[in-house]
Design a protein around this nucleic acid. Structure first.
Length: 508
RNA sequence: GGGCGCGUAGCUCAAUGGUAGAGCAGUGGCCUUUUAAGCCAUUGGUUGAAGGUUCGAGCCCUUCCGCGCUCACCA
């Protein structure tokens, strides 16, 4: 690799060598700054409004983003965590040698610190008149950015890194030159903060449960497997938190949540990444209707905190999060979009026949629940643009949800949809250990033994439930998808710092 | 996994089967208030990889690698 430098990199390495020869360390151990670009500009505007012409000497630090050398003066912009600010370097202030050194040996992307006084240029830009500068870190590889232009206060980037593969593989470069990308992740952090604040304010306890699990469960998905060498034990990366969190309700923790990573060994597309961030909470003495209201409150709180308003634009569509959200019973919703009344057909065979009557595609060998799920995903989901709760699901695709007292084939479950995307999934949790055991056995029959998606029997979970689990409502939500909504990103990879990509040979 | 598309200079992109180019960046000059600075000159390529067809391949064919879209899969 080291023999593989590009021509541009070789030139920069030569500069680095020349700097060292002059006794300038290109990677000094310590740095110093007194202000960020933002606080410096704020300071200047303040002293200016007080009629104070001369400011005090300040020190800035950041990355060189543009340079305009004009003989005996040079203008440059540096960018720091807060933004950009212009530097003005003049032979009169620095001496010709120092100016020439800057012009000759410094490059776009280098980190520097610069000290001096602020002033306004002829064109009115607040600028640091540099009387001392220092290299903080030499950039050997040029950032893949070109030039920025400021038009009406907006930065227009003329050419920049846009190849998605390179943006994700080299997220560091993407972040370094695309401020919009940094903003997405600031929003993501704000979303997480708001959710935590809301749950903490509602007496929830945040916990962490095992990621490496001897038995996976809580969802229907294929797991990643791994192996503990010393214990000689197969382990699975969790596919949900559900079974562990509900054990905690048995332990008299009434309100509990976890925000963390789930891993599912399945297809990758614009709404699925192999590892993704999930919020799950469980609330004793609540049922799914209470959880619906709680969900509305939580998302409105999050919107208020993060966006400062309760509407957002997603891919050109205005979404209004103001409660109450529309509620559609699953059977009614499917009837409206397909003309098939699932309540009228109690077996997979009769339902499949009814679907064929309507010219709907029917997956062979599918269970009744699976057929219903297919109709939901294919026909109902895409129509659910405004926030909608779809509720009351067939029992056989919901092995951890409690049946409706008056109808054992329907469970108290809802999913929240926004912008045609499934966002969350919740139910009145099953707390009857005998029923739960029967459900595990049913699920085992629905999938053949080869299928890794079969729901394995979790004996310890049943043991916990036999100690007594309070009635409770549970909830799960994909944080990545929520972030997509709040940041208007069409692809989950945009909201994950390092999304999974196929391994690539670095030498290639 | 299937279908469609893409892969050319550091970045963004051109190039009927006939000498691989531009802008920006870089390099060398001129230039003391520029801001996509300007002007002059100039470097830079195993066209993703390997085969094949052809007098001749960035372009056509095959295989492979990677990415994107899409379908399948996915509670």
């Amino acid at each position: 690799m080291s023999s593989d430098y590009s021509n541009l990199e070789k030139i920069r390495l030569e500069k680095l060598t020349r700097l060292r020869k002059q006794g300038i360390e290109p990677y000094p151990t310590r740095a110093h700054r007194t202000h960020t670009s933002k606080t410096a500009i704020h300071l200047f505007e303040q002293t200016e409004s007080e009629g104070n012409a001369s400011g005090s000497v300040i020190t800035l630090a950041g990355r060189i983003r543009s340079m305009r050398a004009m003989g005996k003066i040079t203008f440059a912009h540096i960018e720091d965590g807060d933004g950009k600010i212009q530097l003005f370097l003049r032979a009169n202030d620095l001496g010709e040698d120092a100016l020439n050194l800057f012009n000759r040996e410094f490059d776009l992307g280098d980190f520097i610190q610069a000290s001096g006084e602020l002033f306004r240029t002829k064109t009115g830009e607040i600028t640091l008149r540099v009387n001392e500068y220092r290299l903080l870190a030499k950039a050997v590889t040029p950032l893949p950015a070109a030039k920025d232009e400021e038009v009406d206060g907006k930065i227009v980037r003329h050419t920049a890194l846009s190849d998605p593969e390179m943006r994700y593989r080299q997220r560091y470069a993407d972040l370094a030159i695309n401020p919009d990308v940094r903003e997405i992740f600031r929003k993501r952090a704000a979303i997480m903060r708001a959710l935590r604040e809301f749950l903490d304010n509602n007496a929830f306890l945040e916990v962490e449960t095992p990621i490496l699990q001897p038995i996976y469960g809580g969802a229907a998905a294929r797991p990643f497997t791994t192996f503990h060498n010393q214990l000689k034990q197969n382990l699975f990366l969790r596919i949900s938190f559900e079974l562990y969190l509900k054990r905690l309700l048995v332990g008299n923790i009434e309100r509990v949540y976890e925000i963390g990573r789930d891993f599912r060994n399945e297809g990758v597309d614009r709404t699925h990444n192999p590892e993704f961030t999930q919020l799950e909470f469980y609330m004793a003495y609540a049922d799914y209707e209470k959880v619906m209201e709680f969900t509305e409150d939580m998302l409105v709180f999050t919107a208020d905190q993060v966006l400062g308003k309760r509407t957002l634009i997603y891919q050109g569509q205005e979404i209004n999060l103001e409660p109450p959200w529309r509620r559609v019973e699953l059977a009614q919703g499917i009837l409206e979009v397909t003309g098939v009344d699932i309540d009228a057909y109690s077996t997979a065979e009769s339902l499949a026949a009814a679907m064929q009557d309507k010219d709907l595609p029917v997956e062979p060998q599918a269970t009744r629940g699976r057929l219903i799920d297919n109709m939901l995903g294919d026909y109902l989901t895409p129509t659910l643009i405004q926030p909608t709760f779809v509720y009351n699901y067939p029992r056989d695709i919901s092995p951890l949800a409690k049946s409706k007292p008056e109808n054992p084939s329907i469970v108290e479950r809802f999913e929240g949809y926004i912008a045609g995307m499934e966002l969350c999934n919740a139910f009145t949790e099953l707390n009857d250990p005998l029923d739960q055991e029967a459900r595990f056995l049913e699920m085992g029959r629905d999938y053949d033994a080869e299928d890794e998606e079969r729901h394995p029997m979790d004996e310890d979970y049943l043991r916990a439930m036999r100690y007594g689990m309070p009635p409770n409502g549970g909830f799960g939500m994909g944080i990545d998808r929520l972030t997509m909504l709040f940041t208007d990103c069409p692809n989950i990879r945009e909201v994950i710092m390092f999304p999974h990509l196929r391994e690539q040979d670095m030498e290639a």
